[in-house]
Simulated scan of single mutants.
Amino acid sequence: MPTEEVVDIGHPAAWRTTEGLLWFATRRGVAVIDPNRLTENLIPPPIVVERFSADAIDIPLTGNEQNIASGHTSFTFEYAALSYVAPAKVRYRYILDGFDKRWTEAGSRRVAYYTNLPPRHYRFRVQAANNDGVWNEIGAQTAFYIRPPSTAGSGFSS
């Protein structure tokens, strides 16, 4: 559509022709759409976890479960998906296995925050949907273990 503003003062704002074309009266003229030529984007967007940090200290994304010393209180996950068709329309959802009960619908937000996680094993999973709502259900993930205070050392290890 050339514009989102549709003109409808005293006249129909849309019309279907006998050929099946849809005509829309807009402030910038007529917009014509052929419903038979509309295509659906069936390709789920690839997604990655770009950054994982504890108290602003980056934790390596190695693919192995990361061991994290106790005492860290703030955890941040940054993620991104690729869509060449409509990147602004990518939507995200995430879950922290071991903590969350259900998926968090994040909309277009590309970061997740957690605070004061108790010692245990976790797996952060994130999925993305393209502009037509096709989800990459495999998504991306990173696993980590917060050690209890009795076995705490400093830093991270794999």
Rank of each mutant, 00 (worst) to 15 (best):
Glu50Lys: 08
Ala80Lys: 04
Pro60Leu: 03
Thr18Trp: 08
Ile59Glu: 02
Phe52Trp: 09
Gly155Pro: 07
Glu5Leu: 14
Asn116Tyr: 12
Met1Pro: 07
Asn41Ala: 12
Asn67Leu: 11
Ile33Pro: 00
Arg110Leu: 03
Ala69Pro: 01
Thr18Asn: 12
Glu105Ser: 10
His121Phe: 05
Asn131Pro: 00
Leu38Arg: 14
Phe24Glu: 08
Phe156Asn: 01
Ala140Glu: 00
Asn41Gln: 07
Tyr92Gln: 03
Arg37Phe: 08
Arg27Glu: 14
Val111Glu: 00
Pro149Glu: 14
Trp103Asn: 04
Phe124Gln: 03
Arg123Ile: 12
Ala13Glu: 09
Glu105Trp: 10
Val85Leu: 02
Arg147Val: 13
Pro44Trp: 12
Gly153Phe: 13
Glu78Ser: 02
Gly98Tyr: 05
Gly10Ser: 10
Trp103Ala: 04
Gly20Cys: 14
Thr18Val: 15
Thr26Ala: 09
Thr142Asn: 06
Ala129Ser: 15
Tyr84Thr: 15
Ala143Val: 02
Ser157Asp: 08
Gly98Arg: 02
Thr39Gln: 13
Tyr92His: 05
Ala81Phe: 07
Arg93Val: 04
Val32Gln: 13
Ala25Asn: 15
Ala69Val: 02
Val48Ile: 15
Pro118Ala: 10
Arg110Gly: 07
Thr17Asp: 11
Arg147Trp: 05
Gln127Gly: 02
Asn67Ser: 08
Asn64Thr: 12
Glu105Thr: 05
Ala69Trp: 00
Pro44Asn: 12
Arg91Ser: 09
Pro46Tyr: 06
Leu38Gln: 14
Tyr122Ile: 02
Ser83Met: 02
Tyr113Met: 01
Pro44Val: 11
Thr76Glu: 01
Gly20Val: 15
Thr76Ala: 00
Val32Ala: 14
Arg91Ala: 09
Arg125Asn: 15
Thr104Val: 07
Gly139Glu: 01
Gln66Glu: 03
Phe144Gln: 02
Glu19Val: 02
Val48Gln: 11
Ile59Asn: 05
Phe24Lys: 06
Ser157Met: 03
Asp100Arg: 03
Pro46Trp: 08
Phe75Glu: 01
Pro12Phe: 11
Ile68Met: 03
Tyr114Arg: 13
Pro45Gln: 09
Phe77Met: 02
Ala112Ser: 06
Glu4Ala: 08
Thr76Ser: 00
Pro2Asp: 09
Glu50Met: 05
Arg125Gly: 00
Leu38Asn: 11
Gly155Ala: 03
Pro12Leu: 05
Gly133Ile: 10
Val85Thr: 14
Leu22Gly: 04
Gly71Arg: 05
His72Asp: 01
